[in-house]
Design a protein around this nucleic acid. Sequence first.
DNA 1: CATACGTGGGA
DNA 2: TTCCCAAGTAT
Length: 290
Amino acid sequence: MSTDLVVRLNDWFLAHSRPLPWREPGTTPWGIFLSEVMSQQTPVARVAPLWQEWMDRWPTPADLAAAPAGDAVRHWGRLGYPRRALRLHAAAVAMVERHDGDVPSTSDELLALPGVGEYTAAAVAAFAFGERIPVIDTNIRRVEARAVTGVQFPRPSLSAAERALAAQLLPHEDHVLWNASSMEFGAVVCTAKAPACGECPVLDLCAWQQAGAPAYDGPARRGQAWAGTDRMVRGKLLAVLRERDGAVPHDDLRQVWDDEVQRERCLDSLVADGLVDLVGDDSFALPGHA
DNA sequence: CATACGTGGGA
DNA sequence: TTCCCAAGTAT
């Protein structure tokens, strides 16, 4: 039953996992940490090139901590959710100040770092340090919802039942491998939109298949609005600041969006978030780049 | 618990 | 073209 699920997906992983750069032998905990934060809500295929660039530029937490926070935001490029870059910098500073320049090795210590939540703390503890802890991401939730619970998708919010199930499934041997395989399997085969059930190694014991593959019947998952939102305007403003050195006159930023009220609100919120500094009386720059 | 928060690729 | 959504976190 669940033992078969674990064994088969572990075997599948050993034969079919993608060659991601941070899976190379010798990747440091810092490299693992970086890959996990960069991968939050971002497809790993887009992360790989930037991860390599960051590892070359800032090979240790101390290297990033020594740079201005604005450098992290600038080199975040178009990965999205740039507050992650700011928090990564703050996490590097915390590692230098509180952990002797190292990535802390337990999930509890990791959880205390900026930008690190339940998922990332577990993932780094498991993949960098071998801690036996259930890693619960969107892929694993979907795989377990289908294979074990028998539904097409998990509910929008993570439930206590899901945590209990993940804990129950976590084997005592090869637990790191299981965390990696169930996540990878969800990303590659048991996908959200078009699961490749035809090549599924656990089709015969999948509870969702056995139930006749019923359609999802829970509360609707909210779409993400985009056109005309503050998120979009913030993105446009920050893109200008990223591509230019030093301070940018307010006038140059006025050109990216016509609605003055919204534009100024977004500029203010970027400053409030620490993503942008007000320089002089009417210019803006990435933090530390006046 | 719901909502805000970037970006780009695939169907 | 429009919609979906991808290794989530903070509030």
